[in-house]
Each structure stands twice: as structure tokens, then as C-alpha cells.
């Protein structure tokens, strides 16, 4: 696969490592165990568009939020995770 890096253009997926659901960006505040349980263990597993985290390990070390269709591998968006978090604020 090719990951369309927002700063560097398409780069081979071999340069990246994969973490999973981008919901990991939304770490709960406070000490609610149930919220952390959901954050840590519960994931959607959609057949279709999925926002997920990729790390450009053999590259610029940026974490990306990649929107990928898990059924076709089509990638419709890739953003810097830092920008995604910034926009959420």
C-alpha cells in the first residue's frame, strides 16, 4: 500500500507501523475506570471506511490519521495526528 503522507507525498506502507483505530486519540480525562476500559479495550471493526493510526517509523516519525476503506484498501485521507488533535480543540 501507499500512504499519502500529508507532508511528503505517497510513501510505501513498509515505512510505517500500524497501531489501529484512531479513537485512541480520545484518551479519557479523569479517573473513570469504565471510560478507560472502553478506551483501552473496545474497538469498532468496520468493513468500510476506518480512521486509523499509522506511525512513520522509518521516516519522519510522525503519527498519521489515515482514513482507509478496510474492504478495498482505498485511502481517502491522511492527516498529521497533531493537526487532527489541534482541530478537535
Amino acid at each position: 500500500m501507499l500512504i499519502p503522507h500529508p507532508l511528503l507525498g505517497p510513501r510505501d506502507a513498509q515505512e510505517f507501523t500500524y497501531l489501529g483505530d484512531a479513537a485512541l486519540l480520545n484518551r479519557p480525562e479523569g479517573g473513570d475506570e469504565a471510560a478507560f476500559h472502553a478506551y483501552t479495550h473496545l474497538r469498532d471493526n468496520p468493513a468500510g471506511p476506518h480512521r486509523e493510526l499509522w506511525y512513520h517509523e522509518q521516516g519522519d516519525r510522525s503519527w498519521l490519521v489515515v482514513t482507509r476503506d478496510t474492504a478495498t484498501h482505498e485511502i481517502v485521507a491522511a492527516e498529521l495526528a497533531m493537526d487532527v488533535k489541534g482541530a478537535a480543540r
Binding site: L8, G9, D12, Q14, E57, Q58, G59, D60
Partner: peptide, 22 residues
């Protein structure tokens, strides 16, 4: 290295993998 020719033109610097090394 697995980079498009544009990323290897003069004036370009790429961080990538080479024989499993960064």
C-alpha cells in the same frame, strides 16, 4: 531505497528505510 525519483532530486533529503535500517 523505495522512493519516487522526485524525492531523490538534488536538494531533497528523505528519511526512509534501507536494508531494514532507518
Amino acid at each position: 531505497v523505495n522512493l519516487p525519483p522526485a524525492a531523490l532530486q538534488p536538494g531533497r533529503a528523505a528519511r526512509t528505510g534501507l536494508h531494514h535500517l532507518g
